Deep mutational scan, measured.
Amino acid sequence: MQRVNMIMAESPGLITICLLGYLLSAECTVFLDHENANKILNRPKRYNSGKLEEFVQGNLERECMEEKCSFEEAREVFENTERTTEFWKQYVDGDQCESNPCLNGGSCKDDINSYECWCPFGFEGKNCELDVTCNIKNGRCEQFCKNSADNKVVCSCTEGYRLAENQKSCEPAVPFPCGRVSVSQTSKLTRAETVFPDVDYVNSTEAETILDNITQSTQSFNDFTRVVGGEDAKPGQFPWQVVLNGKVDAFCGGSIVNEKWIVTAAHCVETGVKITVVAGEHNIEETEHTEQKRNVIRIIPHHNYNAAINKYNHDIALLELDEPLVLNSYVTPICIADKEYTNIFLKFGSGYVSGWGRVFHKGRSALVLQYLRVPLVDRATCLRSTKFTIYNNMFCAGFHEGGRDSCQGDSGGPHVTEVEGTSFLTGIISWGEECAMKGKYGIYTKVSRYVNWIKEKTKLT
């Protein structure tokens, strides 16, 4: 034993070699072989497995989906700052455009905790909710729209109204504003409101030439003092309507412009014939205590009207009353817009006519005020429907199939267009061939041609 100890002390290297040989010859039971080890760690190889990531292109799944990435790591994937920024906006807080917040056709661009709407022409605001041009839906104005110097929408209202708090709607500024039905039992019968379409306001006024200088022999019209197929109006439903009495009662109609003036057809009036105007009328054979009678003290036909040349060209006249009318729910003026808007309103496509005229061709006159909704007829169809001249200051309205029309005794009465609950004068009943005849239409004086003249002559002093 002493000898062994001496050998170990003198030859430590020998001992180490012996131990190493023993270990190498022993069977290893701690580690699995290569094949079995792979069965336990069965993990798919990654895209760049075996390579240094710093030297390969980034992978979106590896960089940002398996674990949260930084902007720089995302930049490695896209290799483009702009594309990385677009991805980053949604990656950080989701897609803010998912709810489609942009209105009126706006395009949404996502941002971090926010979004941006790219608005089409005519709109602005956070969600493109603000109209900035009158060309689109009248700028959301209830009545009139004008573009300011910086191309912003400025709404306005006709006389007797003021802008509401929203700067879009119009509200009454006087007790009985024009064009409004205020009798409670008839307010439910107000005709369907007309909503502004998209309009090209630059070209809204037709490029028409008034044929002022045409000389033409007097034409022989049949029954051209021209509501057939209409309905009984309720008291106060058309408070701007008046009836004219002269040699015979209810020979023509008219509309209240203001307390002192009536507008009617020029062919209705004769110099030297006494005319009485009755406002607030409903049943011409009954006294309903809503009527107001006034005498006409002055007749002003349009300066281009000449019955000797043509009885229905420039067929418009103004009547001055001896005493002002007292405005109330049964006696209310009709609204008159400017030339541009009167023309736009007419193009809405349908209007209402009213009167006490004959209820059928050569038949009896109506006792109760009649009204009828009539569609506008395109000019080409209008011209083809008659052998008589249709001037540019006239328009056609009615039904091709016949059966409904204005008729004798309705002449001078109103053709009105309702705009968001307020009625505007767009025409004056003038003439036609018979009444409600198939293929024939009622012919009306186009008020847009005469609004400046009306307003100039009827100013209240």
Rank of each mutant, 00 (worst) to 15 (best):
N304H: 08
C335V: 00
G363L: 07
V77T: 14
G13P: 09
D249W: 04
F345G: 01
N151A: 08
S156M: 10
N295P: 03
S99V: 09
S385N: 10
D131E: 07
K109S: 07
D338A: 06
S184C: 05
W88T: 15
V359I: 15
A250P: 08
D232E: 14
S49D: 15
T342L: 04
T417N: 08
A173Q: 07
K455S: 05
S70W: 04
H415G: 01
L32G: 15
E420T: 10
V92F: 09
Y441G: 02
T209W: 08
D111F: 11
V368Q: 15
G230T: 14
T190N: 06
C382M: 02
T271M: 10
L23T: 03
E285Q: 13
T381M: 11
L23C: 06
G421A: 06
S423W: 15
E340I: 14
N5R: 09
Y330S: 03
G349F: 07
E61D: 08
S448I: 02
T84F: 04
V174G: 06
R373D: 03
P101R: 03
H282A: 08
I284G: 08
V278Q: 04
S169L: 05
N306T: 03
A308R: 12
I284P: 06
C155Q: 00
T381E: 08
M65T: 10
V451A: 12
P239D: 00
C128H: 00
T342Y: 02
T417Y: 02
N166P: 02
T215A: 09
D200I: 12
I316R: 00
L346C: 02
H289S: 14
F221K: 13
F424P: 01
Q143G: 01
V56Y: 09
S255W: 01
N245D: 06
A9E: 06
V447N: 00
E82H: 06
D338M: 04
L32E: 12
T225C: 05
F360H: 14
E86S: 14
R180P: 02
S11W: 07
W431C: 11
S406T: 15
E79I: 15
N306D: 08
K339Y: 12
A250W: 06
E171M: 10
L24Y: 07
K362A: 12
K51Q: 15
E116A: 04
N5I: 14
F238A: 05
C268R: 00
G403R: 04
R364V: 10
C28G: 11
E27V: 04
R62H: 12
T276H: 08
A192M: 14
N5L: 13
S11F: 15
K146Y: 12
C170D: 01
S25I: 14
D212Y: 12
K109I: 06
D150H: 10
V296H: 01
G122Y: 03
R384M: 11
E270R: 12
N213V: 10
F31M: 15
A307K: 11
H282Y: 13
K45L: 10
V353C: 03
G106L: 00
P301G: 04
N222C: 05
V278I: 05
I262N: 00
T215G: 09
V181M: 12
E129I: 02
Y441H: 05
G58C: 05
W453T: 00
V331M: 01
D33V: 09
E27S: 12
C268L: 01
N328P: 00
L52Y: 08
A149N: 12
T271A: 09
P333A: 05
F176N: 07
A279C: 03
C102P: 00
K455T: 07
C119H: 00
G349M: 04
M394N: 13
P333R: 03
L103W: 04
F399L: 11
T417A: 05
Y115M: 01
N313D: 07
H303V: 06
A37E: 11
P235M: 08
L41S: 12
E208F: 07
D150A: 11
K68I: 10
V77K: 11
C435K: 04
G398L: 03
A26R: 01
T426V: 00
T215V: 10
V242K: 00
L425C: 00
P177Q: 01
I210H: 11
V202L: 13
E340S: 07
I428T: 02
F71K: 08
V199K: 13
I443Q: 03
D410F: 11
E159C: 03
W240I: 01
E27R: 06
Y47N: 15
C97N: 00
D232A: 14
R140F: 09
T290L: 06
R226L: 06
I112P: 05
P175W: 04
D212E: 13
G13C: 13
E320K: 03
T190M: 04
A250Y: 06
F388Y: 13
V353T: 09
C335D: 01
L369W: 07
S156H: 09
D249K: 14
A233F: 06
F176P: 01
N295V: 08
I210K: 07
D212P: 07
C108K: 01
I297C: 05
C335T: 00
E159D: 12
K347M: 11
